[in-house]
Amino acid sequence: MTEAELLAECKTGLNIPLASTGFDGVLRQKLLAVKGYLLGAGVSEAKLDTDLAVGTIVVGVTDLWNIQSGEIRFSPVFLTLATQLATASLPQS
């Protein structure tokens, strides 16, 4: 999935009109942070292009969108989905 498609999915998840571009820069930053987190957690590039990954990225971006001053954390559902993706990325024996 392209960055533009992921950005559109995040906008949909946040109820931001797709034609609106006012938040694109901030959303891209959060999108890159979430993807970087998932890669660092052991999610393979191949798994980042799955439906589960798209949903997980949207949840993660939403979590970062709703942060309070001095408090940044991912929701338990994001962490559960990230774990599932990382586990699915492990080599099969």
Rank of each mutant, 00 (worst) to 15 (best):
R28E: 03
T87S: 11
S44F: 10
Y37A: 05
L31C: 09
L7G: 04
E3M: 04
L81Y: 12
Q68P: 00
G25I: 09
G60Y: 04
A86Y: 03
A46Y: 12
A86D: 05
T12Y: 04
F23G: 00
D49M: 10
V34Y: 01
P76D: 13
L7A: 08
T12H: 08
E45A: 14
L90F: 08
E5F: 08
R73F: 06
S89Y: 13
S44Q: 10
D24L: 07
G60K: 01
P76H: 03
L31E: 04
V61T: 07
T12P: 00
L38A: 07
T2V: 04
T21K: 15
T87Y: 03
T21R: 15
P91L: 13
F78T: 00
I67N: 04
G55E: 12
I16Q: 07
E9F: 08
L18K: 13
L52Y: 02
G55L: 05
A41H: 12
T87N: 12
I67S: 06
V59D: 07
A88E: 14
E3K: 03
A19I: 13
A8V: 09
V61Y: 01
F23S: 14
A19Q: 14
G55H: 05
E71G: 01
L64V: 02
I67V: 15
G42H: 06
N66D: 13
T87K: 10
L81P: 00
I16N: 05
E9L: 08
G36W: 09
I16S: 07
G42E: 04
E9I: 00
Q29H: 06
T62G: 14
T80Q: 15
K47F: 06
G40Y: 06
V26M: 11
A33S: 12
G25W: 00
D24E: 09
K47S: 12
L31M: 09
S20K: 12
L18Y: 06
G42F: 02
R28F: 03
L27G: 03
P91D: 09
A41S: 13
L31V: 09
E5W: 03
G40M: 03
P76Q: 11
L48E: 09
G70Y: 05
A19E: 15
I16T: 11
A19W: 02
L27N: 02
Q68M: 06
Q84K: 15
V26Y: 11
M1W: 02
E5M: 10
F74R: 00
A46R: 15
F23C: 07
L90V: 11
M1F: 09
G70S: 09
L64C: 00
A82C: 09
S93G: 14
T12Q: 12
L38Y: 03
G40A: 05
L27H: 01
P91A: 14
L38P: 02
T83K: 15
Q84M: 15
Q84H: 13
V59H: 01
A41W: 06
V59G: 00
A4G: 07
A82Y: 02
A53C: 10
V43R: 01
L85K: 04
A19K: 13
G22Y: 13
G13M: 08
A8T: 11
R28I: 10
M1S: 14
A19V: 15
T2P: 02
L79E: 14
P91Q: 12
E3Y: 01
G55I: 01
Q84F: 13
F23L: 14
L90G: 07
L48H: 08
Q92W: 02
C10V: 15
F23V: 05
N66K: 13
V26F: 10
P76M: 03
R73G: 11
